[in-house]
Amino acid sequence: MLRTGVLTEMNDNRVREANFGVIAGAREGDDEVYAFPVNGTADACKDAVQTYGVEKVVDLAVEGAELSSDPETLAKAIADAVRHFELKALLGLNSPRGRDLLARIATILDAPLALDCLKVDLGQGIVTKSHFSGKTLATLKLSGTPLICGIRPNAIRSRPDPREADILPYQASVEGAGRIRVKEVKKAESETIDLTEANIIISGGRPMNSAENFKVLHECADALGGAAVGASRAAVDAGFAPHDMQVGQTGKTVSPQLYIACGISGSIQHFAGMKTAKVIVAVNTDEEAPIFGKCDYGLVGDLFEVVLALTEVLKASS
């Protein structure tokens, strides 16, 4: 049986949800899947990923190196394990840490790399990804081994496939690179849900009018069961929301199951960041707003009234 690896990103020793879709991508060709915990322990990783079809969890170590603060050495160690276990492909999340590691690993292995993939066919070496800031869809053929792919969070649906995984301890025989050191990780000021990995996003545009008003969206996000809140560039530039929250060509690229755009006109640049959402809902006072030409459900009305009503309906029916 062929083997495929998946980088499994963890936060506070918990596997982030979005990884399960990556595992589904690796399982498509019925390969045996090897998980590489990043930023967490093999034990905690195993408990989460075996439910999705992972067979092996690699517990990686390098003598005398602190892998969490040296991305180059971590990449060398994973690359070494990829060779050792003869993996034909390595997948990971196209998150900032994921794509950085994947690029480092591909470079070490002289392997083909495609980031931000929406679909992968590992058997054929064919991937689908965006080109021209989301304006076109490109099909690429990767040649060489192993195939290294970053998957856009939520682009592939997760699929439960329970089994009992084994932990494989592996001591990588690499030397510490020592050229890059993570000196400090500054946590977010508030506990926020990562926009790029959220299943549901509700975003506000220019008519939000103040930072204070974003509270209305946060309340609705809570009623939606823990959605993330985003913003258009107009709202960010006006100082109503931090740049971290910007969705679009010069902000975050997101692919949630549901994207609710409130008071957003529907510019190409905003769409560049959220076009691959499964379902798009638009709330806008102007029935001719361009966004109504490219969404799934359109509601003509004042966003504040509609969002308040939505929050109430959700609360009442949950």
Binding site: D110, A111, P112, L113, A114, I126, S130, H131, G134, K135, T136, L137, A138, T139, L140, K141, L142, S143, G144, T145, K275, T276, I280, A282, F292, G293, K294, C295, D296, Y297, G298, L299, V300, G301, D302, E305, V306, L308, A309, E312, V313
Partner: peptide, 27 residues
């Protein structure tokens, strides 16, 4: 080089069908 990626096809990003417009009071 040992590896490569070749662009096989470019397509327009699929657009959505006609939006379903929902009317009525906010509630």
């Amino acid at each position: 080089p040992a590896a490569s990626s070749e662009l096989l096809k470019l397509e327009e990003m699929p657009e959505r069908g006609q939006a379903k417009m929902i009317g009525g009071s906010p509630k």
